[in-house]
């Protein structure tokens, strides 16, 4: 009898300590510790150094990769943190780029005013799309966002007089000092660092935690009195905002826009980066974006069949390593430390 009660006590104590442990973990996940801050700082400094010493032909690739990391992280706000599989982020990326380019073509505001306006255009469009798409769940949501991407592509292609259609827009739409490679690199890097910091604050805020909770157990969060729809709508607005920021950086990088940015296959690219990098780590998509762009650039020099490589990598990663490079890396470290990795979905 006594052994039984002892066992029960032990069991309870175990439960208790477990509960405490979990609480401590949640607390620590809300505040970035030194280790979580180290990698972003190292990456930013490394990028800055590389950007100033590399020949401009290479720093150009890096600049594009850096700007794409905003796109990937913003997409992951929905994908990894919200559990919302969006195949329509190209809409906001394209809107960001087209806001700047159309404004230049139709002689509207100055470049900087358009640059500041574009993210809000992206956020507004994202809310409109969210109002429709968020009524549906999971697969339907993915298919509907994919359809929106195609819709935007079709509209931009058809409205030739306003958008110059499939030709896209080319020209000197960027201020002179931004055209210089070094200036443009550091400007893009600066915007990226600020954007990633803001999104980091979003994911670690109470709002971000609710978003993750409703990804894991929507019914329970709703039962607690949270309006999940509204939270997801705000998440979509934020993601749309930053996808548009990335789109404006694309204009700075390429000084052109074209309707393919809206295509659903283009919307698949940031999803792809997220999956390469790992969606359950905040910095995972950044790694994904950099690896993707560098691989893209160098492989295209060797082979015309970039899409085959891309497709094969995608299939292999999705089937074998769904947590991406970041997950593989963490698993490696955990194994070396000789403990079983219990990494959950916390960032």
């Amino acid at each position: 009898m006594s052994t039984f009660s002892e066992k029960l006590l032990k069991k309870n104590r175990h439960l208790n300590s477990n509960g405490l442990g979990m609480k401590a973990e949640v607390e620590s996940s809300r505040r970035p510790g030194p280790s979580t801050f180290a990698m972003p700082v190292v990456l930013a400094v490394a990028a800055a150094i590389l950007g100033s010493i590399l020949p401009t032909s290479y720093s150009f690739i890096l600049e594009y990769a850096v700007s794409l990391s905003i796109y990937a992280v913003a997409t992951n706000l929905l994908l990894g943190f919200g559990g919302l599989v969006s195949f329509g982020q190209g809409v906001f990326y394209g809107l960001g780029a087209y806001t700047v380019a159309l404004n230049w073509m139709h002689h509207g505001l100055s470049f900087w005013e358009a640059f500041a306006l574009a993210p809000f255009v992206g956020a507004a469009a994202s809310v409109l799309m969210g109002l429709v798409a968020l009524r549906t769940r999971k697969l339907y949501f993915a298919l509907l966002t994919l359809a929106f991407s195609q819709l935007a592509y079709v509209i931009v292609g058809v409205q030739y007089n306003f958008t110059s259609g499939a030709n896209g827009i080319f020209g000197a739409m960027v201020p002179n000092w931004l055209v210089s490679p070094r200036n443009s690199f550091f400007f893009v890097l600066g915007v990226t660092v600020v954007s990633l910091l803001v999104m980091w604050k979003v994911t670690s805020s109470p709002f971000g935690l609710v978003l993750q909770a409703s990804r894991d157990n929507r019914d329970r969060v709703e039962a607690l009195g949270v309006n999940v729809f509204r939270h997801q709508l705000v998440a979509m607005a934020i993601a749309g905002f930053f996808c548009a920021v990335a789109g404006t950086l694309f204009v700075i990088y390429s000084q052109s826009t074209y309707p393919d940015l809206f295509l659903w296959t283009s919307s698949g690219i940031p999803v792809f980066m997220v999956v390469i990098g790992g969606m359950y780590k905040y910095m995972g998509p950044v790694i994904g974006a950099v690896v993707y762009e560098i691989a893209h650039h160098f492989l295209i020099g060797y082979t015309q069949d970039w899409q085959i490589v891309l497709g094969l990598v995608l299939v292999v990663i999705v089937l074998l390593r769904p947590d991406g490079l970041a997950g593989a890396f963490n698993g490696l470290i955990a194994r070396r430390r000789g403990r079983v990795s219990l990494e959950g979905s916390e960032s």
């Binding site: 993915a142 698949g268 999956v275 970039w306 899409q307 497709g311 990598v313 089937l319």
Partner: peptide, 26 residues
């Protein structure tokens, strides 16, 4: 490819078949 995605989440299915889509397009 596809038989490995049965009973997996929608994201896995969409991305795995997206990979096939890219390969077949090329």
């Amino acid at each position: 490819v596809v038989r490995f995605t049965v009973n997996r989440d929608p994201l896995t299915q969409l991305l795995a078949t997206f990979g096939v889509f890219l390969i077949l397009a090329d």
